[in-house]
Nucleic acid binder design. Structure first.
Lengths: 142, 142
DNA sequence: TATCAATCTTTGATGTATCAAATACATTTT
DNA sequence: AAAATGTATTTGATACATCAAAGATTGATA
């Protein structure tokens, strides 16, 4: 009755971890020097130019501290540049370098492919129900 | 179309993180000195006495190395004891202490309560579909 | 039985998560 | 303008994730 297997949070954790490992392995196989989280951060900056780290953190639901550190690594890897924001010097201006844009583009098709493989055999309807359920759980726990 | 919001893996990640934060906060509020992952490990040992670390890792889908380190902390916290397995000295015998059993029991009702809150308003059918979908995704990525 | 291969666990290196406290700057209040 | 309050980011501490390599032990093979 209380077996781990039957618990939805266990399934969630397992699915997300398996997918991450799978996706990360694909990145490695193709010699892309980037992690999934780093990819997500760059992607979010590209979709929202001028975004602050705080909003960024909320968007990718990471801790501010995590974002700080991921950005540090991305700057080291030359995928991002950061400058002081002249209007508000607490903030920093984050811009994606050409190299950063380039790797996002290159990785893009791989990501689509991964998703396709991961979702094979899942109907559109089930997918929507799952998505809705996950969002409901999120709301309930906020 | 390619917005983060609509991507199921994003929803999964968000849901599991929100739930974890929520559950961990409840543990802290009640002054239970244990993390969710540690709880999970003890629970798995209790359900499978004599289990090896490797099988344990598989059961809770963690890396062997992670399990090693979590167990170290659990031994430090006096929730677990480890001895050399006399039959196979590569392995170690893990036993849950009385204190370990005690905290699992105490935390149990809290866990049930958390789940209930998290799943409020989710129909049994949607839950089953979600669970099935998550398992399918897991299979696809192995 | 000495060697080789397989198994279980640990260690090291690097990346991420989370909380709390500290910094640094900005805005509001007095 | 000085003080209080609020906001954005960083830092420190601790926990967990993942890979690769190393250790230790066992079982199979030559």
């Amino acid at each position: 009755m209380d077996k781990l297997k039957d618990i939805i949070f266990y399934s969630m954790d397992k699915a997300i971890k398996t997918y991450r490992t799978f996706a990360q392995k694909k990145l490695k196989e193709n010699n892309y020097k980037i992690t999934i989280d780093q990819w997500l951060i760059i992607k979010a900056i590209l979709e929202n130019p001028g975004i602050s780290q705080q909003d960024l953190a909320e968007m990718v639901f990471k801790d501010n501290a995590s974002v700080t550190r991921i950005i540090e690594l991305l700057v080291q890897s030359k995928y991002l540049e950061r400058e002081n924001n002249p209007n508000d010097r607490r903030k920093s201006n984050l811009t994606v370098t050409l190299e950063g844009e380039s790797i996002i583009k290159k990785v893009h098709s791989l990501v689509l492919q991964n998703r396709k493989i991961a979702l094979k055999g899942v109907s559109q309807e089930d997918l929507e129900i799952t998505n809705r359920t996950l969002k409901k759980i999120t709301e309930n726990c906020i």
